[in-house]
Simulated scan of single mutants.
Amino acid sequence: MGNCKLDLIILKEELAVCRLQQDAPVPGWALKGDFVSITRTPDELSLLCPAARVPSGVKCEKGWRCLMVKGPLAFSLTGILAALVVPLANQGISIFAISTFDTDYLLVKEKDLERAIQVLSREGHRIRP
């Protein structure tokens, strides 16, 4: 996609990334919310869900905010994540990325959200709440 400029939408809800054992059933609390992602690998069950829904005692990292790339995006497009991740990495901002059939989602820690918006805006991306 070369020098791509993207439209991003900031999702409102604080999210959490949780880790359960690879053979654990998907818990009901993880299925409720506007943004949920479930990934099972041979090593873990990884859940991304609203932070407020995570019960105490669950291994997780809370405090994530999500920037959604306005889609849908064609599978033939290249450089979408790189256009976002490289400028943030250059400024020392950690990310967690999720891709779906239609688009990409970039998560940054709440404490880094304003700085991430500034960095991405300087790169020409358009960001709206």
Rank of each mutant, 00 (worst) to 15 (best):
P72W: 09
S94G: 08
K70R: 15
G57C: 07
G63K: 00
Y105M: 05
A51F: 04
F75V: 03
E61P: 07
I95V: 15
I95T: 13
K111F: 08
C60F: 00
K62N: 14
K70V: 08
V85W: 09
G79I: 03
T78E: 12
P72F: 03
G92E: 09
G71F: 04
E114S: 15
R65I: 00
K111W: 03
I93F: 01
G63I: 02
E61I: 02
S76K: 13
P55R: 07
S99D: 14
E61W: 00
G57V: 10
W64H: 08
A83H: 04
L81E: 12
V108C: 06
I93W: 07
A89D: 06
K111D: 14
S99L: 05
F75R: 03
R53M: 13
G71T: 04
Y105C: 05
T78M: 05
K70I: 00
I93H: 05
D112N: 11
L84A: 08
A51D: 05
G71H: 10
T78Q: 13
V69L: 10
K70P: 04
L106R: 12
K111N: 12
V86T: 06
P72A: 06
V58K: 04
L107H: 02
N90Y: 05
D112I: 01
A89K: 08
L48A: 10
V86N: 07
G63F: 02
C60L: 03
E114G: 06
S56T: 13
V58A: 04
I95Q: 06
G57Q: 08
P87D: 04
I80K: 12
A83F: 01
K70L: 11
E114F: 02
S99I: 09
F75Q: 04
C60S: 15
I93P: 01
G92T: 07
G63H: 10
V58Q: 07
D112V: 01
A83Q: 09
S94R: 03
A97T: 13
S56R: 13
S99N: 14
A52H: 04
D112S: 08
L84I: 01
I95D: 05
S94F: 01
D102L: 12
A97I: 07
P50H: 06
V69F: 02
D104T: 06
I117T: 09
D112F: 07
I117P: 06
E61T: 14
A82W: 02
E61D: 15
M68S: 14
E110T: 12
K109R: 15
A74T: 12
D104K: 03
V69A: 11
A116Q: 03
N90A: 13
L106P: 12
W64Q: 01
E61F: 00
S94W: 03
I80F: 02
L84C: 07
D112A: 01
G71Q: 12
G79K: 08
L48G: 05
L48D: 00
L88V: 02
A82T: 12
K109A: 12
N90E: 15
R115A: 11
A74S: 15
K109V: 02
D112K: 05
R115P: 06
A52M: 10
L73D: 11
P55L: 10
G79R: 08
L48C: 14
A82N: 11
K109P: 10
C49N: 13
K109N: 10
S76Y: 02
E110F: 08
S94D: 03
K111R: 14
S94A: 14
S94E: 06
T100R: 09
F96S: 04
Q91T: 09
P55I: 04
G79L: 08
